[in-house]
Design a protein around this nucleic acid. Sequence first.
RNA 1: GCGGGCAUGGCGGAACUGGCAGACGCGCCAGACUUAGGAUCUGGUGGAUUUAUCCCGUGGAGGUUCAAAUCCUCUUGCCCGCACCA
Length: 816
Amino acid sequence: MKYDFKNIESKWQKKWEEEGIYKTSEDYEKPKFYCLEMFPYPSGNLHMGHMRNYSIGDVIARFKRMNGYNVLYTMGWDSFGLPAENAAIKHNIHPYKWTWSNIATMRSQLKQLGFSYDWDREVATCHPEYYKWTQWFFLLLYKRGLAYRKKATVNWCPSCSTVLANEQVVDGKCERCKSEVTKKELEQWFFRITDYADELLDDLEKLPGWPEKVKTMQYNWIGRSEGVQFAFTEEKTGEKIEVFTTRPDTVYGVSYIVLAPEHPLVDTLCAGTEYEEPVKRFKDKMARYSEIDRTSTEAEKEGMFIGAYAINPMNDDKVPIWIANYVLMGYGTGAVMGVPAHDQRDFDFAKKYDLPIKVVITPKDKVLQAEEMTEAYVDEGILINSDRFNGINSPDAITAIGQYMSDKGIGEFKVNFKLRDWLISRQRYWGAPIPIVYCDKCGVVPIPEEALPVLLPEDIEFKPQGTSPLKDCAEFVNTTCPKCNGPARRETDTMDTFMCSSWYFYRYTDPRNQNAPFDEKKVDYWMPVDQYIGGVEHAILHLMYSRFFNKVLRDAGLVKVDEPFENLLTQGMVLKDGAKMSKSLGNTVSPEEIIAKYGADTARLFILFAAPPERDLEWSDQGVEGCFRFIQRVIRLVDDLSNKLSNAKDTGSMDRDVRFITHKTIKKATEDISERFNFNTAISAIMEMVNALNDYKDSDISKDVLKEALENLLLLLAPFAPHITEEMWHKIGHESSIHLMPWPKCDESALVVDEIEIVVQVNGKLRDKIKIPAQATDEEMQEMALKSERLIPFLEGKKVVKVITVPKKLVNIVAK
RNA sequence: GCGGGCAUGGCGGAACUGGCAGACGCGCCAGACUUAGGAUCUGGUGGAUUUAUCCCGUGGAGGUUCAAAUCCUCUUGCCCGCACCA
């Protein structure tokens, strides 16, 4: 007999589609479950990472469905983005065509895997019906004062020739193409994500269903720090130099201040002095360093005095003003106070340039001497040389000095974040156009909602230089002002694709709505997402932008939930030979070849069996073979046993054993899937059931019990291997789909046994195993254990001091 | 440097609240069926050993406990994230 997976799988896929068994509607009476997977970028072909991600999701969706939930489970395409444009330039194919043909390929690959998506809800972010609403959301943010335009030094990727958000710069390199990111002054659109910094941080606590790791990453990225902001006054010009510090308790120890080389005051302060030239040279040198070189902890601190002095407002000390590589314009005020005695960076800098070190905090047990210090003293201590604050404990002094500054009008308490506003302009073609026009008379004018979408023109020319073709498309650029009807120019930048992916999960709830991004009632029913599954690489970018979006939509009254994703599962990578599968390493295995050779059920089973979902998974061709063999064993077993079923006249002497196996497996598999997503152990439990039933092939089992065993075996396996279980389900006489059946229920009474095996230990070491009646009391257990003959040599010449009993499990005899 | 995670047979992994270490699968060994086996079935498979053993064994060293892969302290190696954030 041959396992004809090709025909079996395509037959059922066709049938499921015809019968629409995975279609979902809003049944408001039924409990809902929203199972969401991170939608793919249509790069051309499905890879193993996709297959793993979606196999996990499909099991959860099917399991929840069988458990009576109304499950929303669908698929879409994150289909705007740079690769399409690169393909256009390289292969002279229009991004539109390239993208849609990739979508078609990948859709059919997904269908071949038998995932239970409701394909009627499919969305693609590059479809005008979708990006119309992306633009609508831009306008919403604009109206709410959350979208603004400003000239800023931005991250520029020369190879992609576009700006990048901070989150897209990884190690100073472009997240996508890995080329070195440079800086550029440009007028750009930003979203005010920093308005939500506090809430994004605080609400991490409302996410117990998220991995700690992801929450920590977001926590660090938001980077909240509390401190005090106050100003030094430049001696000659009277210019205020604002600094931020988390250590106001050290303010009497300031011996210099440092500005970032790009600080606007630098030029003002040394204009016309002998320092002007060398400062300019220093700045040029800094500009040549990449961000990564300049901010690496290994980089030597480098700076110079710029010929000016500032007055410390707390004690009127006059301190020199320096510029240095280690101070960043992008954080705080771009200027810091230097306290060498109590900050390691300042200490290093002061040592190198021979700046004074002034101790203002000293440990309780001894007095610190500046000359003797080999490193900064950063711990708590008592304030000295600090005027009225002498003798105060340094943690108390932070508040006391901050309060004093605030009372005297010198400074104020301030919270700083590392999080920057989200730069969403991209100088690229294949994205959603920003719905804005520039009018000489009216200035910046948003496109009215009813005029959406602003369509991306298709008839354009791609240039190898990689500049956005939109700029050169006169029909697109030249338009009329919606306000005054005069001539106006369209914004030619498009939106960051992360904008498109920040709201797709709402669209799934109402994907064909023509009048709104989604219907309120539907979105309220489905949201939040109950289970989100995807790679950890989106821990910051996508997951934080989506959280931000959710909060904006909530404040706009469009959704009610505070957080979009209740539970998050970050699946591990798929490795081959210990390394991540990648084209450059040449160690890839494509889902396609595995499906062709073994079928979808085997592929799915293997990827779920080989490791728990959160761990990395080592690909093994032999492991795949093993799963292939397992499926064939199931087929043989079901065939053999159903033959037995048709001519059985058994009395059922083995019924109890078989029922025990059946219900034990139901219990174990149910727990493993629902409580822990440990599909690997759920599958191994099912394998054990198959092994056990094999042993009972020729035993005396009654019809009902045999039938119960077979049906439950198939039901338990159905979420993992949907095709073959459906095939066998029909083979044993069912008419309707196995995937519409309820999940098996464990009959606890079947697990009751007369006799149990317990472990007998002497001094914690296993010495015997004995069978005792299941109902035995602790005393009876001990009694029986002590009777064991195998214990005699271990107890000889010793006195039993104590006997410990773990009910139904173990007796440990402590003997001396 | 800071933060997080991991470490168990030849391999992937199991052991969930401390209670039989190595489930399940792969691989390997032996046998059966066979012209053949890279099919299938049966049995075996942590190490050591005098092969029915008061033995050793979960990266390493200590500790807590009647009992530790699991808890605590120290330590080594690997992976991930952040990284001069004032």
